[in-house]
Computed example of a mutant assay.
Amino acid sequence: MNDPVLRLSGISKAYNPGAPNEVQVLRGIDLTVAPGEVVALVAPSGAGKSTLLHIAGLLDTADSGTVEIAGDDLTGQSDRKRTGVRRADVGFIYQFHHLLPEFTALENIVLPQLANGVARKAAEARARDLLAQVGIAERADHRPAAMSGGEQQRVAFCRALANEPRLLLADEPTGNLDPSTSDQVFAALMALVRGTGLSAVIATHNLELAARMDRQIRLEAGQLVPV
């Protein structure tokens, strides 16, 4: 039986711990994501979903609990080890695309591959293939300022998948788009995810988008409950 791609066990996180203004954000979170499973994380702003995603993706550390990615327990590991796993196995998408404005769409997708040791020719070929999959191959040589918001976010999707991660973590990936564009861009994202078979946790407050995923969980009072 394959290991879960992501396993969180007993994850707790507080801000200003021990102070009068302590805020307990996460309270003993347990979450398992199977290979190829797409999970919707439903929560309003301020509920702690970004904190949870950052801990799951090794960008932040929990006060207690363990984080396993593809069977590898990363709890207490060195920054170098965590960075290596994050670079190879985890892709991130945010509400805002965060593309590098001085580079083209193609270059934005090539750069993380070069940082991961991929040869330029192979990196460019993968970048063009990903852009074709999300329907904007003709935008390869355009800089972000010359693209629409929806096109920019599609490039961000491609960048997140450039290094063929096992796990995709997305924080309100269409939250900055109008409803019509949001639906189109989300469909492109799901096609990418399904086409590659990777696992994903996608945070959204849009219940219609959440319903299109395999499973829905809600973050309430620092704990996960099924929807």
Score class of each variant (00 low, 15 high):
N163A: 03
P144K: 08
I217Q: 07
A203E: 03
R166V: 08
T196H: 14
L209Y: 06
P144Q: 07
E172H: 09
N176T: 09
D129Y: 09
V155F: 05
Q216M: 13
L111N: 04
L114E: 12
A210S: 05
G222R: 01
K121M: 14
F157G: 09
L219I: 07
E208T: 14
G135W: 02
L111S: 02
E107L: 09
A127M: 04
E220Q: 15
L131K: 11
L161A: 04
R128Q: 13
D171K: 03
A137F: 03
V185W: 06
L219P: 01
V193S: 11
R139A: 12
I136G: 03
R120Y: 11
L161T: 01
L224S: 02
L114H: 00
V185L: 07
L177A: 03
A160S: 12
R126I: 02
L161F: 12
P173D: 06
V118F: 09
L198P: 08
E172Y: 06
G222Q: 02
A140K: 11
V155A: 12
M190A: 01
P112L: 10
A160R: 04
M147S: 09
K121L: 15
A122I: 11
G135V: 05
G149D: 04
N163V: 06
F157V: 14
A127Y: 06
E107W: 03
V201S: 00
R166Y: 10
E220G: 01
A127T: 04
R215Q: 10
M147C: 07
S148M: 04
R215N: 07
V185M: 11
L224P: 00
G149L: 02
N116L: 10
A140S: 05
A160I: 05
A191D: 15
V118E: 11
G150R: 14
L177I: 05
A187S: 15
R194Y: 03
D214C: 04
Q133M: 11
Q216R: 15
D178S: 00
F186D: 13
Q223S: 14
S180K: 15
I217W: 10
G175C: 14
D183I: 11
E164T: 13
Q133D: 11
A191S: 14
Q184H: 13
H205K: 03
A187V: 10
G197N: 00
E164N: 15
A221H: 13
Q133R: 15
P179K: 07
R128W: 06
A210V: 10
A200N: 06
D171A: 04
L209P: 04
T204K: 01
N163P: 04
